[in-house]
Design a protein around this nucleic acid. Sequence first.
DNA 1: AATTTATCCTAATCAGGATTAGGCTTCAAT
DNA 2: ATTGAAGCCTAATCCTGATTAGGATAAATT
Lengths: 228, 228
Amino acid sequence: MASAPRKRPAAEPRAGQKLSPRGELKRTQILDAAAEVLAVRGFAGTMLSEIAERAGTQAGSLYYHFASREDLIEEVLRRGVTLTMAHVRAALTELAPETSARDRLAAAIREHVRFQLDVSAYARASARSTGQVPAEMRARINREFRRYGVFLDELIMEAMADGAIDPGVDRSALRMLLIGAANWTTEWFRPDGTSNVDEIADLLVRLMLSGVAKPKPGRRLPKKSKVD
Amino acid sequence: MASAPRKRPAAEPRAGQKLSPRGELKRTQILDAAAEVLAVRGFAGTMLSEIAERAGTQAGSLYYHFASREDLIEEVLRRGVTLTMAHVRAALTELAPETSARDRLAAAIREHVRFQLDVSAYARASARSTGQVPAEMRARINREFRRYGVFLDELIMEAMADGAIDPGVDRSALRMLLIGAANWTTEWFRPDGTSNVDEIADLLVRLMLSGVAKPKPGRRLPKKSKVD
DNA sequence: AATTTATCCTAATCAGGATTAGGCTTCAAT
DNA sequence: ATTGAAGCCTAATCCTGATTAGGATAAATT
């Protein structure tokens, strides 16, 4: 009986450096493939067979790297949030240190949208699929979300303290509306030339900060994005 | 062989008045139940068994009223859009005829959010589930969406013509960001006392029209909602 | 009352996709 | 050149949930 105890518990690569000793490569390919499928099909429509195909392997083989479909998906979604936060954070550190709270918030919004639309299938995946996920997984992922929420909340608070945002508004609602508008872009954005990422990002920034009321002649509007 | 040709093609009640001759009632109960399940579970998680349970019937029995799971769901989602548009439209007709374009748009936004959050599970269902639906169904539902989009677009155009909105902004992107923020509320809104519908609605209106910049002393902000 | 028709139920059947079993290949180290 | 773990494949198996078959039951009609 009992053949070899094959199949590791599908643990993530330790925090350490033991990155791709061989098959970690495929593991990554699988994650990437899953992110793309999730971004397009949503949690429901995502089939292991399609992920496997894109990763150049077989549905059954996925189980060597992940304990279950849910595990795989969870990791993708979690990464989506983590990566987004990391990206935005990194972008902010590159700003001149004297950058105003208002401009920092603006940059954050822009980078969030950009990252999602232009760069990362993981980000798109979690924007689109997180809502459809079973309760327990949802709860676990929410931890990451909350972390990102706190991060944004701080930016908003600083902008308030700085006089850029009316301190009277409900920070939480504001943040959620913002995130909503941003995440929803994945539903309608056309990667072909029809839509323009920067335009969308800038518009969202403008909505948050000055609104789209017809500009009073004297008042400067936030201009074209230029972060790096 | 061939027993009776039972089972109607699950047609909708004709345009006429033949409304609930008996079982149209249950049909409605089923739709209502489906709307609630969809609003919470999303397209993927929605099981006929749960719908049936809520409607006080059996999964198999649903097929007397609908040709398939997809048909049922499609009708719910379609209704979500239709009803929302109808509600918003109705609210606008009740405004004083001299109401400004700006205020009309504001009212529309408020009523959209309100209807979705406070009133209609159908609206919530289509806000949450439309994104996850198979391509063909999607295409059919999109027709309704486009109709609503045009409707909103007109409001925005009028507000532009009226000088309330900067004519320079991309109407389409603006509308999508708006709809996104609104629809996404279904992901985070807490029906318990934690969240406040009116506050959210007003905040979104404000975002669209004046932004959340700290108010210049002289400038009036849109005030508490009061449509009817 | 008898017959028809509309509604609905129960217990299968079916289908499709996740999961698992067990074995085959590398390849690095001995 | 062997050997053993790592990495992967194929072909079942399993499960779940949609769908269907074949009646009940109830209301309406004659």
